[in-house]
Design a protein around this nucleic acid. Sequence first.
DNA 1: AGTGTTTGTAGACTGCGGTCTATCAATATA
DNA 2: TATATTGATAGACCGCAGTCTACAAACACT
Lengths: 195, 195
Amino acid sequence: MTEQKKSGGRPRDAEAAGAIKSATLKLLREHGYAKVTIAAIANEANVARQTLYNRWNTKADLVLDAIFEETGHYAAAPTDDPNLTCQLQLERFLMQIFAHLSESGAPIRALIAAAQDDDAFRDVFKTKFVKPREKMVTDLLKRAQNKGEIAQGRDISMLSIFVHGAFWYALLGGDPVDDDLAKSIVGEVFHPAQT
Amino acid sequence: MTEQKKSGGRPRDAEAAGAIKSATLKLLREHGYAKVTIAAIANEANVARQTLYNRWNTKADLVLDAIFEETGHYAAAPTDDPNLTCQLQLERFLMQIFAHLSESGAPIRALIAAAQDDDAFRDVFKTKFVKPREKMVTDLLKRAQNKGEIAQGRDISMLSIFVHGAFWYALLGGDPVDDDLAKSIVGEVFHPAQT
DNA sequence: AGTGTTTGTAGACTGCGGTCTATCAATATA
DNA sequence: TATATTGATAGACCGCAGTCTACAAACACT
């Protein structure tokens, strides 16, 4: 499974990857996804354009990698804290994600866009980004159902889709993705008023 | 408010717009959004490239217009049929939309993508495409609430977001957008199991 | 007819993403 | 030291979206 180099060869510049990713994030924040050119990134990182393409296939790949590196920290799965209700845990988890999205929202939207006309990239994006978060929410909802915070008969996977769909919808539509949204989502998922 | 031409001038070719839109839809179906070039469309429509840019600003604008023309028919608001439950009405409405999406899903995904890095286009897309459907669903849900099919305390706007978010999420993720999804969504919205 | 205005056509041009090639630099192995 | 291999660099190159220019064509008004 591990990559096998046939023999020697010139080793990759150890600093290049980091420099490129930093340059990417910097320019991304300054100018936004659409206006950042590969040439500019290469230039900022003091590297040839081809060096960049040696490591990533497309602009989207690179940006995904750069964003993912810094975003990885935020995506820590919430450990089950028995002192808190699952509802509160989910609320906090969403708020945490949303807060980060309001920082990197624009580039992430650009990534979603890139995922639409590139099958390979969509797979990577789903695997690295979407699925893990989906699982965290689903697990949390299951715990809530086991503890009786959510009725037995409810469709957890559909609720999970509701949660994710709601913030994707807001994100893509350009609507605010903030604490209020998090509270509204969680409130409606956990406490649908009775008939 | 009405556009005022100062004087005469050569009139626009009456057939051009239609020919361009038809060519767009044809090539779109044959090759998909990414592979369709403006040049190819102009060629297929027997028109100069510039003529096309005289009428639409970008490729996305043109495609939106072309798709919207044929999709307009599908988006007829469901009139309130007192013989049917609102639940059934919503179910049928969604099925109708989903069936259409499975035809034009790919180009529409491309439009969503295009909307991400173009503010002006996003506004048009929201106004022409998103908002009308959002309103139809919201109205329907309100009727359901008035008739008692949905509990008074529930947040209609959030439910509407759930509905739309769910199918956007499925659409963008490449998951099937079919009758089953429609039923699951509607079922969970109308009949959350009681605690 | 003559003038002004708008559209259509053809083609050059710009900018960017991405590919490809030739050449040089840095490593391992013999 | 010689060879093979891999990475880095610079620059040419392609395709496409979108712009711009020059000119011809079709209208209204005088």
